[in-house]
């Protein structure tokens, strides 16, 4: 893997590299070079499988981070290729020519995040939201609670409890306090 990263560094401008596990690595590249590096990874390095394509809304930076998760069947290594695109003018090159199933992910991202993929087939069709009229709902500045209150009918009398406290109160009152799970042990 180190060799591959070194090789990639020679080819393109790698903005970041992070190793999460032995079989899970992330690199970040520039937007214009993305298609080139994906084609290289697919054709020459054995990352033949596009596991998923997803977006993260980095609203503070005004960016969307797209993650193209690739998988190499012969070495069992996952490689995530990240790219930052502008949030206001969200547009990305389509990869449906590299991976035929990419159009479905792009259609989803187009609907839920409003990222445009010019040239991708059927990208304008609705994916899960039929007849959606508001801003794309997965953008973080979309207030779902407000929309829900406005659109759907609330049943009065709804209250929210902290599950742990509530269960302790209701079910385990007569039991000695449990040691609990210490997450730091991990």
């Amino acid at each position: 893997m180190e060799q591959l990263i070194k090789k990639l560094k020679g080819m393109v401008h790698l903005r970041a590299y992070r190793k999460q596990r032995d079989d899970l690595h992330f690199i970040m590249v520039d937007k214009p070079q993305l298609e080139m590096i994906l084609a290289h990874l697919k054709n020459n390095e054995g990352f033949t499988h596009l596991a998923f394509l997803q977006a993260v809304d980095l609203i503070e930076d005004g960016k969307f981070q797209l993650t193209y998760m690739l998988y190499n069947y012969s070495t069992s290594v996952n490689l995530g290729v990240n790219v930052l695109i502008d949030r206001d003018d969200a547009e990305m090159n389509s990869i449906h020519k590299l991976w035929a199933h990419g159009w479905q992910y792009q259609r989803e991202l187009h609907e839920l995040y409003g990222i445009d993929f010019p040239g991708s087939p059927r990208v304008e069709e609705s994916f899960v939201l039929e007849g959606w009229e508001e801003m794309p709902p997965m953008r973080r500045d979309f207030d779902t609670l407000e929309y829900s209150d406005k659109t759907f009918y609330q049943r009065p009398g709804r209250s929210t409890n902290d599950p742990a406290e509530y269960m302790k109160e209701k079910m385990y009152k007569n039991y000695p306090p449990s040691p609990g799970i210490r997450r730091d042990d991990e």
Partner: peptide, 10 residues
Amino acid sequence: YFDSYNTINR
């Protein structure tokens, strides 16, 4: 899902 944009409440 009470605050979801996509699921009904009642």
